[in-house]
């Protein structure tokens, strides 16, 4: 489980980017974070794995076999250890383009294997087999040996998911995983992420309410650094207007094309 308590973050000029963000996500939940651009969605997500340190507040991770841990209050070494079990799927894939898809997947376990062994790309056969299985789950095993730079956007995102699967995390975070993809690829990726929530809490940042309505179990809306909605993923027009304000017109156009949100 991951519990976020009262996260705050401000710019030096005093402008509040995060203003008391709090929520809990349990295993079995696929939580979509929505909100207009600049609302603080990605900042919140970055706080969840310690890529960003909040000014105050806490991010507590509770797993079955260990004590609860506040990742905002641990040192660098401990943070590296905790991150080994937090999978992240990034918007821009963040894969090493000159390495093969399989090698990129293996990077998922970088923090978990001996440093000296990893420096010589000394992964074991068993690890390579597991990495191939992870690629197989996202239907990419046939392209395992391809240089990642030659893959399409959708394929790269699938490799990124395979990397997160191979990492065998206890929490999965996804930062706008479908923003760069066409609707068909976006659906495929969402279908691949959703079943992972049965094994671990999944938190994703999205810009597509119709997608969160269809695939997420819960939606959290953030606006001006505050949580303004936390509940059912199917949002009414009134609620969408509340969340997006002036951006709503755009969303309505999307709704018109893909009528998936509840009226």
């Amino acid at each position: 489980m991951i519990e976020v308590k009262n996260l705050t973050k401000s710019l030096p000029n005093g402008r509040k980017l995060l203003d008391g963000i709090s929520f809990k996500v349990k295993k079995g939940e696929f939580v979509g974070i929505l909100g207009p651009s600049g609302a603080g969605k990605t900042l919140t997500l970055r706080c969840l794995n310690g890529l960003l340190k909040p000014d105050s507040g806490s991010v507590i991770i509770k797993s079955e076999n260990s004590e609860p841990l506040d990742i905002c209050k641990i040192d660098k070494r401990e943070l590296r250890r905790v991150r080994q079990k937090i999978g992240v799927i990034f918007q821009g894939y963040h894969l090493v383009k000159r390495l093969s898809a399989l090698e990129n997947v293996m990077i998922g376990k970088l923090g978990q294997i001996n440093t000296f062994r990893s420096l010589f790309y000394g992964f074991t056969d068993a690890e390579a087999e597991d990495a191939l299985k992870a690629l197989d789950r996202v239907k990419m095993s046939q392209l395992a040996g391809m240089q990642t730079g030659s893959l399409s956007g959708g394929e790269m995102q699938r490799v990124a998911i395979a990397r997160a699967i191979f990492q065998s995390p206890t929490i999965l975070l996804a930062d706008e995983p479908i923003s760069n993809l066409d609707p068909s690829n976006a659906k495929t990726i969402m279908k691949m992420i959703k079943p992972l929530s049965e094994q671990m809490p999944v938190v994703g940042v999205f810009h597509q309410p119709e997608m969160t309505a269809k695939y997420c179990t819960r939606v959290i809306a953030i606006k001006e650094g505050k949580v303004i909605y936390d509940g059912d993923p199917k949002l009414s027009n009134k609620r969408l207007e509340e969340i997006y304000g002036e951006e709503l017109e755009l969303i309505e156009q999307q709704e018109h094309m893909m009528p998936l949100t509840a009226k």
Partner: peptide, 13 residues
């Protein structure tokens, strides 16, 4: 670099 750090990789990795 951030993505390597996000899986717990150290500086050498």
């Amino acid at each position: 670099i951030e993505s390597m750090e996000s899986v717990g990789g150290n500086k050498a990795q």
